[in-house]
């Protein structure tokens, strides 16, 4: 059965309304995107949506009790809550530098969990 879905492209802040015609995993037509990024975005949204996961991780001896982290690349949307569990169980030790890998290859997605700021030790 052919279905159509209207998506708001979030590849950039412009937010084009993109209409996708598809049957199962097969894309038939994509309309409304102002740039090629919209094409890729719409395809992915239908087949397997992925997202960056930004969250926090607990820090021992840090200037703050938490350090913000993110996945180094988009991971499947369906994996978010399980990833939260894994990150939630972990506690790291200060100091940490922005970009430092804290968890490698989370859930075999190929994405690492990295610090998104410097976290000095508690003074």
């Amino acid at each position: 059965m052919i279905e159509t879905k209207t998506l708001t492209c979030v590849a950039c802040p412009k937010g084009c309304e993109v209409t996708v015609e598809y049957e199962g995993d097969e894309i038939i037509d994509i309309k409304g995107n102002a740039c090629p990024q919209g094409q890729d975005y719409a395809k992915e949204e239908i087949v397997a949506p992925t997202r960056i996961l930004p969250t926090t991780i607990r820090v021992k001896n840090g200037a703050l009790p938490l350090c913000p982290v993110k996945t180094t690349k988009q991971i499947p949307l369906e994996n978010m809550f399980e990833a939260m569990q894994i990150i939630g169980k972990k506690e790291i030790e200060a100091p940490v530098k922005m970009g430092e890998v804290l968890i490698e290859n989370i859930m075999n997605t190929g994405a690492d969990i990295v610090a998104t700021r410097d976290m000095p030790e508690e003074i």
């Binding site: 802040p13 960056i52 930004p54 913000p68 993110k70 922005m98 998104t116 700021r117 410097d118």
Partner: peptide, 14 residues
């Protein structure tokens, strides 16, 4: 827009 890459708030600030 500014860095032409997607950052988190703390990264932008850092």
């Amino acid at each position: 827009h500014y860095f032409k890459e997607e950052l988190t708030g703390p990264e932008y600030a850092q």
